[in-house]
Amino acid sequence: MSKILIVDDSNMLRDMVKYALNEGGYPDVTEAVDGVDGLAKAKTTVFDLIVSDINMPNMNGFELIAELRKMPTYAKTPILTLTTEKNDDMKAKGKEVGATGWIVKPFVPEQLLKAVGIVLGR
């Protein structure tokens, strides 16, 4: 069963993502409130997918992804960024730090599940 980590500073958005994932057949979802928390959780559990916000306090999504990619465990793990920022900078930066893809907020569950399904090979 796929283990998924959601990193977002908004309680509401975490809940939405988690709900969509649970409904879509991914019950094993862990939440982290920012990059620092996400990194700590990623170190103690091996996740199959990470969905991270970009705009977060303490450690933003890009910094988190960069850190994760340094870890052998997460070298190839799919990481989707969840963001309102959909400009080139975001993508360039996302690509640069090694994100797998992006999901634009606001999202509908189907979009998220589609993207997640693709990266998890469902």
Partner: peptide, 9 residues
């Protein structure tokens, strides 16, 4: 679609 992928490995 509202989502996209960076060219990943």
């Amino acid at each position: 679609e509202g989502f996209g992928f960076f060219d990943e490995l």
